[in-house]
Design a protein around this nucleic acid. Structure first.
Length: 443
RNA sequence: GCCCGCUUAGCUCAGUCGGUUAGAGCACCUGACUGUUAAUCAGGGGGUCCUAGGUUCGAGUCCUAGAGCGGGCGCCA
């Protein structure tokens, strides 16, 4: 068809014949099924330009088609400017290339499938919590607290970079900035959602999160979506139960509701995409103490690049050994050394570990990180002091303990990593519509 | 932040030891065929070999620097 080829979402693939043309139409948000449109009978060029509408049944759909219609007339709404340079062709493109045309890649079947899986998982997340009485709390995007010291943050400012107001000492005069103090994009909604947990019991956040880390891997984004539930009166074991129930729920929903797209991923992207999820939802998670995990790793008949000893944080290679080789199913590692974990994690009786947990899954490693929170103000203060944090900067977080408090626990799940795991997409940049990574935010 | 790799047609790539006019598949254009599913067949057009500098009689090929992209590690979700 060449210059006559309509390149738009409704009709993607077509084949020209002397007297007719076949147009493949996708059913859009409804699914992967497609139909065909046949236009023919008179010379095509005139015909295609004619205004028209009526369609009627042509014949029963062939294999792989949702339906087939016969068009008696057709109007082309948007012509392709230059068919030869149209970036999306009816062939396989590399994902690296498609990232350079992120505005057009949703027209490919792979990114259509990713978008539907994303939607289905997001919907299942909301349903899971809603059915259990959790309230969705919209925590702020802009923050003036360094949340958990979780990493580099993106500055939010309206100051003129070329003419920064200065104090007499030469420091930046933040009182002249929009918020009259340094502000950033949030790295976690946890501290805020804890405030609502202390008032409304079971709550969660689900929204965008930002990390200005210079992380160059296939598992990191500068902007990603995170799910963070917070449960009142829950201890670490309850937290692990919730994480297990939650992951199984959303993956089961995906298998049930998007079997068409999952079959596509299994066929074209990752052969084990479906079986991996089926095994995941059917297996019970192994629980393992950190101390036990270290002992098992030390006995492992395998040489690790990073040697294992009690007190270190587990490396990716250790986590993968535990879940993939030692246990062969998801593992929850619990009660990590105090000194490698955040100040808000609850100190255990032994005084050397905290009630932290990581959920490790075969094929991806850490998928969830969480903890029971420290509800005892004196212990919290001691931990902040030990980590060199300024108590006054966390005054409102401390208030949550000062003015009536209950034990509570929660975790964080990276949504894109979940999409990545479910689909088998190798790079997290292909699990979000418009990825932001160091040096890259074109679209 | 550290280490490694890649960059040749619209896309995916080949290009030997440094040597004549840089190739293939797909895409595009023309033609054949009344039903395709990555159709097929015949013909045709299409190149800043990432950029700059250097070595050489001669550079897509070797050297230096830079840019872009990717992989691994660290940080984490």
């Amino acid at each position: 068809m060449g210059a006559n080829a309509p390149g738009f979402q409704g009709g993607r693939f077509l084949r020209a014949r002397p007297r007719w043309v076949l147009l493949r139409t996708d059913s859009g948000g409804g699914g992967t099924g497609h139909g065909q449109l046949r236009i023919g009978g008179t010379p095509l060029d005139e015909r295609l330009r004619r205004h028209a509408r009526a369609v009627s049944w042509w014949r029963p759909p062939a294999k792989g088609q949702a339906l087939e219609l016969r068009a008696t007339e057709i109007e082309v709404v948007g012509w392709v400017d230059d068919p030869e340079t149209y970036p999306i062709q009816p062939k396989q493109h590399s994902f690296e290339y498609l990232r350079e045309v992120a505005h057009l890649r949703p027209r490919t079947n792979t990114f259509g499938a990713v978008a539907r899986v994303r939607h289905t998982l997001a919907h299942a997340v909301q349903r899971f919590f809603h059915e259990r009485g959790y309230l969705w709390i919209h925590t702020p995007i802009i923050t003036t607290s360094d949340a958990e010291g979780a990493g580099e943050m993106f500055r939010v400012s309206t100051l003129d970079l070329l003419n920064l107001p200065r104090t007499e000492a030469g420091e930046i005069e933040w009182t002249e900035d929009f918020f009259a103090r340094p502000a950033s994009l949030t790295v976690s909604g946890q501290l805020n959602v804890e405030a609502y947990c202390q008032a409304l019991s079971n709550v969660y956040t689900f929204g965008p999160t930002f990390r200005a880390e210079n992380s160059n891997t296939s598992r990191h984004l500068a902007e990603f979506w995170m799910i963070e539930p917070e449960t009142a009166f829950a201890d670490l074991s309850d937290n692990a139960d919730l994480a297990e129930e939650f992951l199984k729920y959303i993956f089961r929903a995906l298998l049930d509701e998007r079997s068409d797209d999952m079959a596509f991923f299994a066929e074209r992207i990752d052969r084990s995409a479906v079986t991996r999820l089926e095994q995941f939802v059917e297996s019970s998670f192994e629980r393992m103490e950190y101390t036990e995990a270290v002992a098992r790793l030390e006995r492992a008949p395998k040489r690790f690049e990073f040697p294992v000893r009690w007190g270190i944080d587990l490396q990716s290679e250790h986590e993968r050994y535990l879940t993939e080789e030692l246990v062969g199913r998801p593992v929850v590692v619990m009660n990590y050394p105090r000194d490698i974990k955040a100040f808000y994690m609850r100190l255990n009786e032994d005084d050397r570990t905290v009630a932290a947990m990581d959920v490790l899954a075969p094929g991806i490693g850490e998928i969830i990180g969480g903890s029971q929170r420290e509800e005892r103000l004196d212990v919290l203060d001691a931990r902040m002091d030990a980590q060199g944090l300024d108590r006054s900067a966390y005054w409102w977080y401390r208030d949550l303990r000062r003015y009536g408090t209950v034990p509570h626990a929660g975790f964080g799940l990276g949504f894109e990593r979940t999409v990545q795991y479910a689909t088998g997409m190798a790079n997290i940049r292909d699990a979000i519509p418009f990825p932001r990574t160091p040096g890259s935010a074109e679209f």
